[in-house]
Amino acid sequence: MGIERVARAVYVTFTNSLAGYALALAAAVASVAAAYANKHVGAFFDALNTLIQSVSILVWAIVFMMVFGVTSRKPPVLVAAAASYPILLTSLMGAVRSLSWRFRLLARILGASRVQELVYFILPGTLPYLAAASRAAVGVALRISVVAEAFGSSGGVGYWLVYSYDIGDKDGVFAWALVLVAMMIAVDYAILRPVERWASRWKL
């Protein structure tokens, strides 16, 4: 377990999780924008959210691996996205509902169009809530992408953890588990908490 291998594995897991989170974030923001424009679309995303949450992450991991292959890096990314999307969407939808009357009133007073209302008033207003939800979503993305890595051979922390188990290397299992914990703590303290603090400055 050389330092180079650890660094490489951490890089792979980190980028898998981050890509999954970014994908989920983009999908959640787009869903909220669409739902804001049309309440029927909103009902559709509500149902989709329930559906995604009701399917086990294990099922998503197997399905994505069947579709993209075990050596692909796509399954861990997509599984991380599937796990964090409901967290982000639920939080964003709730934030939009709770803030909108004040900002909608201001938007109407200023004569803003529906698009301007969303871009200038509603979405920025959800940022503190989004930052708080992101802490949970990134944590889930990290933990879940490791599970998907364990099934494949992408070379992330999850892959090496299961590999150590397969060859009966107990120390290796604990060492990779510690790497994962250290990664989670580092990401939480170095990125997520400061971002949450920064965004909560303008929480109403």
């Binding site: 004040r102 200023l110 004569g111 803003a112 200038y120 920025p124 207003g125 303008w202 929480k203």
Partner: peptide
């Protein structure tokens, strides 16, 4: 021009930013 009963300013923008946004929308 309408000034509502409750002061509603966008907390993530400076006062300047709020006023310029109103002008931009108009």
């Amino acid at each position: 021009g309408f000034v509502p009963q409750e002061t509603i300013l966008l907390p993530w923008r400076s006062l300047r930013g709020n006023v310029l946004l109103a002008a931009r929308i108009a």
